[in-house]
Amino acid sequence: DKPVLAIQVLGTVKWFNVRNGYGFINRNDTKEDVFVHQTAIKRNNPRKFLRSVGDGETVEFDVVEGEKGAEATNVTGPGGVPVKGSRYAPNR
């Protein structure tokens, strides 16, 4: 398990590439950019086929120490709701 650095952090999605399945979230508290992989998205938009977060979307997440620095995990919308997802992700 990766060491946990912070829990229930709010941030804004800087960018997310649906095809490659990753992007970055900017933390509201430290203004640090945190890597996010599609496997870290815990509550996906049920209408979306692929797990994703949308550019500019506000999300809540935990921060863990990854191999290359801070990574987001347990990604949801604020308060644990499903994320909205990327407009580029296909609908079901």
Score class of each variant (00 low, 15 high):
69 G>E: 01
49 F>C: 14
79 G>E: 09
77 G>W: 05
56 G>I: 01
69 G>I: 01
86 S>R: 05
83 V>P: 04
84 K>S: 08
64 V>T: 06
69 G>K: 04
89 A>G: 07
73 T>Q: 15
44 N>E: 07
25 I>T: 13
21 G>C: 12
71 E>D: 00
81 V>T: 14
58 T>Y: 06
75 V>S: 00
59 V>Q: 01
64 V>Q: 07
57 E>K: 04
66 G>R: 02
30 T>S: 13
61 F>S: 01
87 R>G: 08
45 N>K: 04
49 F>L: 15
64 V>L: 09
85 G>C: 05
83 V>F: 03
64 V>C: 09
74 N>Q: 05
14 K>N: 11
79 G>M: 09
70 A>D: 09
86 S>K: 07
80 G>V: 04
50 L>N: 09
68 K>L: 10
64 V>F: 04
11 G>D: 05
44 N>P: 15
76 T>M: 06
77 G>A: 06
57 E>G: 02
54 G>C: 11
76 T>D: 00
57 E>Q: 04
71 E>Y: 15
67 E>W: 12
82 P>W: 07
59 V>H: 01
59 V>A: 02
61 F>I: 04
91 N>Y: 13
84 K>N: 10
58 T>M: 12
63 V>L: 07
50 L>D: 04
90 P>D: 07
92 R>V: 13
55 D>V: 13
47 R>A: 14
80 G>H: 04
47 R>E: 14
79 G>V: 05
28 N>I: 10
7 I>V: 13
58 T>A: 11
35 F>Y: 09
5 L>W: 04
53 V>E: 00
81 V>E: 12
10 L>V: 12
56 G>M: 05
85 G>P: 00
61 F>C: 02
4 V>F: 10
21 G>D: 12
58 T>L: 14
1 D>H: 11
67 E>S: 14
81 V>P: 02
91 N>Q: 10
66 G>V: 03
29 D>Y: 11
53 V>S: 01
57 E>N: 01
56 G>E: 04
69 G>W: 04
46 P>F: 05
50 L>I: 15
49 F>Y: 15
51 R>W: 04
68 K>T: 05
74 N>G: 03
79 G>P: 00
54 G>L: 08
76 T>S: 10
59 V>L: 07
79 G>S: 10
45 N>H: 05
78 P>R: 06
61 F>G: 04
83 V>K: 02
52 S>H: 04
51 R>K: 13
50 L>P: 07
75 V>A: 02
69 G>V: 01
59 V>P: 02
78 P>Q: 07
88 Y>H: 15
72 A>H: 00
44 N>Q: 09
44 N>C: 10
72 A>S: 02
63 V>C: 03
56 G>Q: 06
54 G>W: 01
61 F>M: 08
44 N>D: 07
83 V>D: 02
91 N>S: 13
34 V>F: 09
81 V>S: 12
65 E>Q: 15
29 D>E: 04
52 S>M: 02
77 G>V: 05
89 A>Y: 04
46 P>N: 09
48 K>P: 03
89 A>C: 13
